[in-house]
Design a protein around this nucleic acid. Sequence first.
DNA 1: AGCGTGCCCGAAAAGGGTTTCGGGGACTTT
DNA 2: AAAGTCCCCGAAACCCTTTTCGGGCACGCT
Lengths: 342, 342
Amino acid sequence: MASSVGPSRARKVTLRDVAQLAGVSVATASKALNGRDEVSEETRRRVTEVAERLAFTPNTLAQSILAGRSGTVGLLTNDLDGRFSLPILMGAEDAFGAGQMSVFLCDAREDAIREQHHLKALLGRRVDGLIVVGSKTDPRPPLGSKVPVPVVYAYAPSTDPADSSVVVDNVRAGRAAVEHLLATGRRHVAHVSGDVSYSAARDRAAGAGAALAEAGLDHVGPVRYGSWSEAWGRAAVAALLDADEPVDAVVCGSDQIARGVLDALRDRGVRVPDDVAVVGFDNWEPMISGSRPGLTSVDMRFQDMGRRAAERLFAALDGSDHPGVEAIEPRLVVRGSTVPEA
Amino acid sequence: MASSVGPSRARKVTLRDVAQLAGVSVATASKALNGRDEVSEETRRRVTEVAERLAFTPNTLAQSILAGRSGTVGLLTNDLDGRFSLPILMGAEDAFGAGQMSVFLCDAREDAIREQHHLKALLGRRVDGLIVVGSKTDPRPPLGSKVPVPVVYAYAPSTDPADSSVVVDNVRAGRAAVEHLLATGRRHVAHVSGDVSYSAARDRAAGAGAALAEAGLDHVGPVRYGSWSEAWGRAAVAALLDADEPVDAVVCGSDQIARGVLDALRDRGVRVPDDVAVVGFDNWEPMISGSRPGLTSVDMRFQDMGRRAAERLFAALDGSDHPGVEAIEPRLVVRGSTVPEA
DNA sequence: AGCGTGCCCGAAAAGGGTTTCGGGGACTTT
DNA sequence: AAAGTCCCCGAAACCCTTTTCGGGCACGCT
């Protein structure tokens, strides 16, 4: 007879229902369920039993409205399809999930209008704080001064240094790559990077250059900027080898470029790592796992960055965060493309 | 003197504040801001002006508690680091974002305990519905019968056929791959796939086999199951060519395997697509963009799947969804690995 | 027996917004 | 001028939970 309307339209069971069925007042029911000691064991038992039977779940909305804190956080990303925001998001989810926070996810797609729209919705829902995830390392304008909750920027820092930001350290990453190459005996280091309009490309090159300079060296040829693609890596190798300068190492602006470089070197019969060592950035699984030999790469620790952003947001919530830009230290992962595999 | 505590601890401005400052009652303020016509234009103007000035944002929590609908949905994923959940999630975010829904993101990491924990939290927050995203196409146990809101399963269907599920059609995808190969004149089709414990691997092989059978053909050799990796693709090519049976096409269980197959064929001097055609599945950008030649692949349309799941959830919300499993039709994307590029 | 003392429990307010309903003021009509 | 009508506005209830405060009841002590 299908007397119930729809699949699951049962009115939500409320504390009043529980109280009524247990024969106590709502106040008592509340106290019983929340473990307050102003209630007898016998009553508590009866109330909890009824709550269990009705599958009662306290309405967090009502609790939030009362407490003035919602226990929710907004995660405002601009790059949901990208590689960077996802691990960050995971790290944040991780850090929050441990506690009692729930996470609102919003993708603004690099659109400032959409971002403001989402921001407004989140503030309406009374999020306790916000994490803003960028898609590039280049600084971005802050959300606006009128945001009444703490904000932490991840990956892309705010242009305002007084905001809280957590970023990767591209300069240091470039330095780490070169220091590893120097330590393993390389002296002729070329550099193939991505789009020069990205600060990530320029910063990594700057770090690499600085490390070379400290050893009294310089890049072989100019830093070759191009695009963040395998095709560019392959094309760059052609140009590099045709230039006929000795090269025993290539620093690549990303793992994808490195993959192209590796493939092109293999095509040309150049042995890796014997003749030329190759280093990438990001330690990106899909590129790493298939490459021959395994690609040495600088891991930017996106997930830790997300976790750290969440931690700082927590700190900001109880006022113990001091704002500013914090850099995550990159971590070199050595594989067969720079050191012969055992 | 820093009399304010913390960076932005201003008490939230409430409707009462607006009303007071505008010299009207809360009731009138509410009506003015919500466009109800029981208020004079003059009053409305004054109220909106004050609201604007105070940056008043109505407390959605309070509205929700009253309306009995929160305007939020839970997105319960198990594979936040994976390739599948993300586009699904984007599609869903997309479909919701258009309206007034906000999305709670939770990653259960394949852990049933954690899933239940998140579920409870989401129900406490009175989500209006749930989308559950799996990490494999294999059916999964439903959340539980006691869930008082509509649920749509995406990618991994519920084992209960009476639940609402949106899945990819792997059989059809396998068929599409083979039909394309047959249409372009191939007759000797080998099949290299991933982990046999995945229904995705088996279903794609089944679809491919069926299409071959209809043409009076069969796979060259057995379907070679292995792992979802480039390395396996390379290894399989070695075995395949050593078997010394004629092969003019290889269907690969994933783009990653296909990438390995392409690389190994190139190493061995086999021309693609002239001598052998290669097809992959998933149309996964990172693998596609770098491959030589461009990889023909069957796009499973994850994003559309996510969007569809969101649409069905909407339908379920107003009772117009009829449950059951719905399959998304895959789409073949032809590139240079099966047809010579112009 | 009377008084004091705990122990449980319930009434009520709070929190922010929406909605219903009634009332008051101004304007029109006779 | 009195009566009727219409238009705005405000008081109050409601949603669900927590918390404070006061009251009632039983028991012990003198």
